[in-house]
Amino acid sequence: MQTTRQMIRQRLRRWMQRVPGPEAQPIVLPQRRVYVLPTTAGLGVVVMLIVMLLAAINYNLSLGYAFTFLIAGTGVAHILASWRNLVGLTLSVQAEGECFAGDVAPFRVMLGSRNPYVRHAIQIRADDGRLLLSADTIDSHSRYERMVIPALRRGTMRPGRLTIETVFPLGWVRAWSYVEPDAPLLVYPQPMGELPMPHANSMNAQNAQPTRHFADEEFAGLRDYRSSDSPSRVAWRRAARDGALLVKQFDAYDSEDWLLSWTQLPNTLDTEARLSQLTQWLLQARAANARVTLELPGAGVGPAHGDAHYRACLERLALFGGDER
């Protein structure tokens, strides 16, 4: 019994979604993909109208008839207004910036209107009903909104199936649609681990603190701030002057050459813990702009430095063991 009901619900859902997997962006909601049903409050209004109609008939209340019919007509207009509030809405999701497992995925939604119709009180929910975004007004000027979706695991992540809904204008009727935007985001492993930084040229663990090398480094320039940067490297004076968060970069490849190797890690750590430790080290190396070699089973990159190299290393860590695990 329970299983058939679940099956029916699943079928219904699949039929309603009618999109086989991630969709190309931007997504424009067509008429046939917007569904409408009364809310609990709307059902309350329906019951109220039935009671009022009976009272109007029984007591012969002409104004009772008029009021009942007026509210009923308004309710029907509400159905169409809610439906119209979604039809023609444009939406595209982008991932901006880097993201580590455990962070909030930096998904942003661009909402717009395909026609000069102004939309109000639109909400986006995750599949489990969590509210991700609430937009008060959407007109033809597209606007960005942040969506709060946690990135739980490393690897390629998509925002998943989203429910766009509205109960505007009166809350008696809910119009909704399902979208599954194709906005892939590579989630890097969570940087975590207590082990000291290994060095390629000196295997001495006592020299492992990256801060130790600051004195030897030469200032090499400024680059954009990343969330993983140490606050001590932010060019605060510059920030105070013109508000741009920049980070001081130092050339250090004369002093150090770091080898981040899977095989050097103790056997007590499992795969994810190893990847987390390697990520931690990699971020420290990036903060110091050090030359890094990353060795994973079956492949190695480096030695090299620079943003492109670090990104390549992070991608390897994120996708280690294949994307589909």
């Binding site: 019919f69 007026l70 009923a72 308004t74 029907v76 207009a77």
Partner: peptide
């Protein structure tokens, strides 16, 4: 606006 749409039905 909403009520005006309901008036013809009423």
């Amino acid at each position: 606006r909403l009520l005006a749409q309901g008036v013809p039905l009423m």
